[in-house]
Design a protein around this nucleic acid. Structure first.
Lengths: 235, 235
DNA sequence: ACAGGCGAAACTTTATACAATCTTCGCCCG
DNA sequence: CGGGCGAAGATTGTATAAAGTTTCGCCTGT
């Protein structure tokens, strides 16, 4: 009874049973309740969601395509364990794409969107006040996705969804301190720049925001072996 | 070791039956033998490849995630028909990503890679000499993918694979003349810049190359309706 | 005591059968 | 003669069962 029905965080087609499974597992991974390397048995998930393995399988395949689950032949599905090299690639891609996304978001600005952004910031502050780490991690990712939706570019949105999901895993694996994943201050500053319609400032804020997130990670190459070894010894 | 999640999207092992189906259908679409809107019946494909519907279904789902196939509930799978808006998004994304990819490719240059690029150019010239439109379309797409592989960035490579597949459909739908999709000259100039290690030139060549491809398309918004209508009347 | 192989259990993979849904064609009515 | 309604056909969505593969435990031989 971990995550049976997500309230209504994001639901373009949550009526589909496979979508419900996919979003449930995604939420569990993004909220760091499922750790990298965890095995995702088909029967196990099927029992939780009351669905047959056929549906679980399609959901897992979609997650594998998104890069947050690895499917090994005849072995099963596991929560992905991005390497430091993967982490650098993901953040480089985000630094390339997200400033452009903010640009387009400003072009598509509207009172409705500004309202949604404002409500989101409130939610983030609320979660941070309660020290609710899980909600905080989820919301900080959703902020970036919200801007991508605002931009109206479905291609960029699809790419960013993948990058955000992977980022969540990366932050879990490699962050130095227990500082909250995304400083809410940055998000507020980005929204301010969007409100003003200042593209240059928005791009700059987004870029420095992403740089700061990556700077809080420990991405030395040897770290991979250390972590791998520690896991093996631990389990 | 960084070789962990390789067998995810493309063809390290085409021995998998589902991979063979996916690549067969992909090739048919990219070579313009399957036109946009064509219905892809599950039994139909299953008979062709001698596979059960289960395998066909997973292959089609992967293709849907790549964006070259649309799956409509209780209707079936169809070759995607990108709108002019989609087309603009795809090419904008390519103009954003590919110059950066070339940059990294130059960083990762090696005699082996230069050899592969040279051999590819030869293949392209060969196909163009024979006026083999199908091979020409396929090879011009593979050129861009080759550079992405050369860059070593798996994230960019994955994104670009999607963009190239969609581009092939877009070019088929919206090109003005019957000029070959990608001028081989541009590709040769890009390789020359890579050989020299001139990043600025390579980025510039890539950018103008992409611009030229898009400039040969007819992407007026009303054109969508015209084309849609023409198709209905034609079929 | 330890290395190597044998066998059973669990899992994924694949195939088949059933149910739900949409499309199409024919018919009836206005 | 045109349009709406209804049943047959076809196709997809879902579930279940059979088949193949890997892994782990256990036993035997040295």
């Amino acid at each position: 009874m971990a995550a049976k029905s997500q309230p209504k965080s994001d639901a373009p087609d949550a009526s589909d049973r496979v979508s419900r499974i996919r979003e449930g597992v995604t939420a569990a991974i993004l909220e760091h309740r499922l750790l990298p390397g965890t095995k995702l048995g088909e029967d196990e998930i099927g029992d939780i969601y009351g669905a047959s393995r056929t549906l679980v399988r399609t959901a897992l395949q979609q997650l594998a395509h998104e890069g947050i689950v690895n499917i090994e032949k005849h072995r099963g599905a596991f929560v992905a364990r991005p390497s430091p090299a993967d982490a650098r690639e993901v953040f480089e891609a985000r630094r390339l794409i997200e400033p452009t996304i903010v640009d387009h978001a400003i072009d598509a600005v509207s009172p409705d969107w500004l309202d949604r952004l404002g409500r989101h910031l409130t939610e983030e502050r609320e979660a941070e006040r309660r020290c609710d780490a899980r909600a905080s991690v989820r919301l900080s990712g959703e902020f970036h996705r919200l801007i991508a939706e605002m931009s109206g570019h479905s291609i960029y949105l699809g790419f960013l969804k993948e990058l955000i999901a992977r980022s969540s895993l990366i932050i879990l694996l490699y962050r130095r301190h227990d500082t909250p994943a995304c400083g809410t201050n940055h998000h507020a500053e980005i929204v301010t720049a969007i409100r003003k319609g200042d593209k240059v400032a928005a791009r700059g804020q987004m870029l420095s925001h992403l740089r700061e997130i990556e700077a809080e990670l420990f991405l030395k190459d040897p770290a991979a072996d250390e972590l791998r070894l520690a896991d093996v010894l631990g389990a």
